[in-house]
Design a protein around this nucleic acid. Sequence first.
DNA 1: CTGAAAGCGCTTACAG
DNA 2: CTGAAAGCGCTTACAG
Lengths: 353, 353
Amino acid sequence: MKRPTIGDIAKRAGVSIGAVSYALNNQPGVSETTRARILAIAEEIGWQPSFAARSLSVSRANAVGLVLARPARLLGVEPFFMQFISGLEAELASRSVALLLQVVEDHDHAIEAFRRWWGERRIDGVIVMDLFHQDSRIPVLELLRMPAVVVGGPEGAGSLPCVWSNDAAAVAGAVDYLVALGHRDIARVAGLSGLEHTVTRSHAFEAATSRHGLEHATVILTDYSGEQGARATRSLLSGRRPPTAIIYDNDVMAVAALGVTAEMGVSVPDDLSIIAGDDSALCRLVHPSLTALARDISAYGGHTARTLLKVIDGVEVSSVEDHVAYLVPRASTAPPRGARGAVSELEAGVAGA
Amino acid sequence: MKRPTIGDIAKRAGVSIGAVSYALNNQPGVSETTRARILAIAEEIGWQPSFAARSLSVSRANAVGLVLARPARLLGVEPFFMQFISGLEAELASRSVALLLQVVEDHDHAIEAFRRWWGERRIDGVIVMDLFHQDSRIPVLELLRMPAVVVGGPEGAGSLPCVWSNDAAAVAGAVDYLVALGHRDIARVAGLSGLEHTVTRSHAFEAATSRHGLEHATVILTDYSGEQGARATRSLLSGRRPPTAIIYDNDVMAVAALGVTAEMGVSVPDDLSIIAGDDSALCRLVHPSLTALARDISAYGGHTARTLLKVIDGVEVSSVEDHVAYLVPRASTAPPRGARGAVSELEAGVAGA
DNA sequence: CTGAAAGCGCTTACAG
DNA sequence: CTGAAAGCGCTTACAG
């Protein structure tokens, strides 16, 4: 009933354990016939390598760590994470690398987890999500010389390799689209102010709106939660000059905004156009369905996994760009009332001519 | 630059590695003074135990596995999972047990993962989610004599310990509430037909509705996705005798239903009352906010973790009951139009007397 | 191509 | 209380 070891195989095959090891690992050093015999015996007695023993010998954990530093409350509603993790995990599993997951409160605890896991040689590398501006995790990882890949960047990733998506271009594209529809009053409800990509997106938003000569380009910062998204929306719509379009930094807040418009009697998209910053099933669930900036999040996770495995294998990797998010127009965006009237008049004029 | 081992500590302290091991593990066999000296040295040179070496010696992995067998698409939108995992992980982390996460396509792949992890002694136990009726994973785990705890049950969990919540009572309570409001036509949009708790809930729904003498208690099965939730809602509302209240098996479908009612011009809660089977931030995000069956999912995860750790420690555990979900009334439920009229007449009558 | 042996970094009886 | 040694199950130079 005890689990079989290579010693048991060696005994049965009448060879040394070294030979068994070579055979099992497809190394030269055994004849094809003995290799076949050894493999057959291993199969027969149901041998499986001891993970700990192998780890100890080759000093490799075959595992990577992911430490999420967001409250469970926010992680839960945000479809992004589970989707990213799925893609990440699928790629890792295909190379028999395990994923260790930990959820912590802040970066200090994340760093503690890195230190412990790495010190124990329990993981071969980590992936860093939710990159902050001046992120305290980066210098620690650099110091530990720990294989790591940052999701986001490249600004703020320090010397660590990163997999990123051009957020600035995506935001600019969204603004361009709204302007093309005729909007002049566009606001943005952003995520956590500490996040590097919030900074990037805000800069891009400002650049794009001022390029188009828009003046009232308000930005409100939130924690990504539906509550704060709703609050920001109420405040924008109650202002002296309410925007005719709002771009949200995720889908959860955009959905919450839809609730606020219903509550305030604001019609979407007639009175207000809404763009969700992430696209998930949520955006198609609600009515009207939400125009969104879409990306294949699962593939992004897979891309990240492959990059980390390269880094662990000692391949020199710097920054890798993933696809830019693209706009998926749905029912929540349309020309603003005024502009539509203008278009109609124009059409009428043309028709009359 | 090489990582320090207990050998290094022993050399510095001028003792044997055995003594160091005893000191580090708080075992008797060393005097307090040498223990203190050894601990100080360990601290000083930044020693951390090699996870693999320790695992190999004590033959314990200090890790548990979680294999999710749902498509990423569904995992992502469902806030339940991330919340459950957070609670689970927090409890595991507090005892320095790691969580290995894998996402697979079906139960066969899940079983394969169990076999591999267990064979490699990479985990000490697993937790089984989404228990199916006649679940193929159960007999395998029983055969492997692998520590495991089932989330759900106790029906269908076989001889495995489980942590469950009384779904039947929760559903019955929801039906009672709707009936008390005056509803007589109540439908249920259920989740995956293969899931054990779908069966349990359907039985409870039938029992409750027939106890109240309701006749048109339709049940429609779905895959939990918003798409299918929306489709089921459309079909119910387009029927010859549309229900005045619908109970959904999760929150995602209830949100989707809200989209459908908007699209069809059905007013919630005037024309239709909606109850969501899970409560998450989503239910408060939308407008009208959704009445829901609420539970502390994170605590449920923690409870599950503690139970599994007990099982791993050899404690005899059978089935453990977690809290029953309770109804959180919000804006999506109200008396049906007819009944409210009736109540008004009644009041009028009373007032007139 | 094969065997005997050292080593990975711990834990734990077993003698002193 | 302490030291020397075997053992956990592998991998990998090193001789034949």
